[in-house]
């Protein structure tokens, strides 16, 4: 899964189109792909609700249940061998969606942005350090 095509405009936090391949002893099992986009012109594929496969009115219980259900297939510890490479990124995305939607404040502000701008969304509120918006790998 070497990256060949990358979104051209990358945020300042990006290592443009950098594919991080693990050291040889891990090469078969793992390859990290880092790119980031804070760009509003680069459409990202899904809303946080879509990532978790829940409705926009989903309760905390539904969000938790969806998170667990997805974790059981996407977490690198349980993902099929041929999917280990992408599963870490996938799981991080799911976890970011889960932790944003489970935090009432973050969810409210996310909902506002969703509503107001109707713009493609990237994963926010992920790190607690402000506005770094990681978008990892291609959409799934």
């Amino acid at each position: 899964m070497l990256s060949t095509s990358f979104p051209a405009p990358l945020s300042t936090a990006t290592f443009a189109g950098k594919t991080i391949s693990s050291p040889p002893f891990h090469a078969k099992s793992r390859r990290v792909l880092i790119s980031a986009t804070a760009s509003t012109t680069e459409p990202s594929c899904t809303s946080l609700y879509e990532i978790l496969g829940v409705a926009a009115v989903a309760s905390d219980q539904e969000i938790k249940a969806a998170y667990r259900r997805l974790a059981r297939v996407s977490h690198p510890d349980v993902a099929a061998v041929d999917r280990k490479v992408s599963s870490a990124d996938e799981f991080m995305k799911i976890h970011a969606a889960y932790s944003t939607l489970l935090d009432p404040e973050k969810r409210a502000s996310y909902d506002r942005s969703l509503f107001r701008q109707q713009q493609p969304l990237t994963v926010t509120g992920f790190s607690g350090y402000g506005c770094r918006k990681w978008e990892t790998d291609q959409c799934w």
Partner: peptide
């Protein structure tokens, strides 16, 4: 930070 769910990836400027 501590108690961050793994796998994790974060950055800071």
């Amino acid at each position: 930070p501590r108690n961050t769910t793994m796998p994790a990836r974060k950055d800071l400027l």
